[in-house]
Design a protein around this nucleic acid. Structure first.
Lengths: 343, 343
DNA sequence: CCCGCAAGTGTTGCCGACAACATTTTTTGA
DNA sequence: TCAAAAAATGTTGTCGGCAACACTTGCGGG
């Protein structure tokens, strides 16, 4: 029995029809409108489908129906717990509605984003949930042109024409800053985060408003949302001996970088520098609840985004909706100075 | 200009051909064998393609060519850092070879796995990288029947007919146990992990061999690879007051559960119970290097699995290859008793 | 100067499903 | 019992590409 790799696969609707003694249209109906078949015919087709292990070809189906039941989630950092959790929410909802999920990672690069979106367009996916990468030149007009539904998560785009689901970044920045102020801290720096990204701007604005209202000067050190950025900025501050009393980190990864750099420099958190950040690090928090965070409801964001995308795919045409979900302040040790160390 | 949502998308090869004044075959050649076109024709088609933003329809292409350039990664737990890292490796390799990656999560359920594989078969994907869910009744014959390439990761299946990439689980179990024995610990329990899964059996065998060679009795408490399992088993042991001196946890999540439960019971790690586990928790380790682990090279596993899958897709037909990658023991605080606490 | 070959381009049928429409069979009711 | 309506099933063309094959040109060599 040689070459088992060829030939025998490729069961088509015609094979089923012939073997069942019906026309191929009847086989199509078996899948799409089973109620239209007589019980006798239904049973006969069913038997052959099982016997031949027939599975309709999605490419052929999509070619004639114009739908693929394919949906993509495009994120900027596949290793981030925030996006992993979102992904989980999206995936659960997609699966329960019969959509297959394609996961795509842009590594925060607009060029990669563009190339990947092209591939997705080629597949004529039904919709995309997108976190735009940092930078200029996003071209979603291609998606519109091909009738692909779009929902943004976490970050807004300038034209504001798409549905958006995001956590309350402004409140996150504000509440973290307030919390640090409540600890009696004054010299508070905002660290990390990519310029030109809406979520960052909101977080920064929250910080700025809180500091301004309290009458304290601002200290802002932007970068990216990555761990590397947190490390680099902290390194620079430590080297210049210009460390603040406290840091509001733009993301959990930035905070991670800050902690790593602080250990390297022998600087104690929270006693030398207090730290708080946006987004939780759940696994780490379970081992040792250390970082104070403003947590976004990532799973809910994913779930909601997928639900909204499905509505769009199904043709709803109301104007762009912007949904903002509340964040939760979780106070842990990284931001609270210990009594003993107040020396 | 109403109803912009319909009509104008759907640029086909014929539109391009007409506008460029050539036949559609020439447009196909523009994409598939550009060297066959005269410079003049090439430029003319190129201009129209750009003007019309034409992107070939992958469904149509796949229908006639029989290939989709779609590849799926099927894992049992999308939130696990181990799989997330693997995913990263797979994704990078897939992207650089022109494959689009579909990510699928089975939540360790064989039924879900079956349903999802059916959906993937419908899409006639070119290949699957699969972590089989715990349990009986895996039916990959469907995949074979449809000529879909398969590479397993992390876990072997009984028939042994597929390519496999995995870390050295046996060595992981053995080296962790040895390490604990070296600390002078004797009463060492193996905790967690799903029965009937090959990676677990190997880890367990490593533990068993090490303990037997040292002449110590075994203590084995199986479950799943999840955090819940670690918590539940530790809870039971603590309640019965039968805690061991040390624990080899079957996975990082199990260890996480152990740590959480230990804190709840007021039991100190490592001084009351030492802990070590398979697979690192990278983020947590950066904040606070605590858990001793035997780390599998997850990124490499993903990368290698994808490379092997591509070879299969391209028709290589050597017998099933089994690739085992070494693990690395990383000793941290969770397994080493502090001098002061030796009281 | 014409033939033959090769490079460049066009024509045709097909991949596997769906859907509109056509046709056959069954049911219903006067 | 038979016509008309309803139900069940069949026929045909189409979706958008690909590839085998057919057909033009232009050029070099005999």
């Amino acid at each position: 029995m040689p070459s088992s790799r060829s030939g025998d696969h490729r069961v088509t609707i015609y094979d089923v029809a012939t073997k069942a003694g019906v026309s191929h249209a009847t086989v199509t109906r078996f899948f799409r409108q089973p109620e239209k078949l007589s019980a006798r015919t239904y049973r006969r087709v069913e038997a052959v489908v099982n016997e031949l292990h027939y599975v309709p070809n999605a490419a052929a189906r999509s070619l004639s129906s114009g739908r693929t039941n394919l949906v993509a989630l495009v994120v900027t950092d596949i290793t981030s717990a925030f996006y992993t959790t979102i992904m989980h929410g999206v995936e659960a909802t997609a699966q329960s509605h019969g959509y297959t999920l394609i996961l795509v990672n842009t590594d925060e690069s607009v060029e990669k984003e563009r190339a990947l979106l092209d591939a997705l367009i080629a597949h004529r996916i039904d919709g995309v949930i997108l976190t735009p990468a940092q930078g200029e030149g996003h071209d979603l007009s291609q998606l519109e042109r091909h009738g692909i539904a779009v929902v943004l998560i976490d970050r807004e785009l300038p034209n504001g024409r798409y549905d958006l689901v995001h956590g309350d970044s402004y409140e996150a920045g504000r509440t973290l800053t307030h919390h640090l102020l409540d600890q009696g801290l004054r010299d508070i720096a905002f660290v990390g985060g990519p310029e030109g990204v809406s979520s960052l701007e909101q977080r920064l604005k929250g910080y700025t408003d809180a500091m301004t209202a309290a009458g304290h000067p601002l200290r802002v050190h932007l970068g990216t949302y990555s761990r590397q950025s947190g490390e680099a900025i902290f390194d620079a501050l430590a080297t210049d001996d210009t460390l603040p009393e406290a840091i509001v980190a733009a993301s959990n990864k930035v905070a991670l970088g800050v902690l790593v750099a602080a250990r390297r420099h022998g600087i104690r958190i929270p006693d030398d520098v207090a730290v708080a950040c946006v987004d939780d690090l759940e696994t780490a928090s379970l081992i040792d609840p250390f970082l104070t965070v403003a947590a976004q409801p990532a799973y809910d964001i994913g779930q909601l985004a997928m639900e909204m995308l499905i509505e769009r795919i199904e043709g709803k045409t109301y104007p762009a909706r912007k949904v903002m979900l509340p964040v939760e302040l979780i106070v842990r040790r990284s931001s609270v100075r210990t009594a003993t160390s107040e020396a």
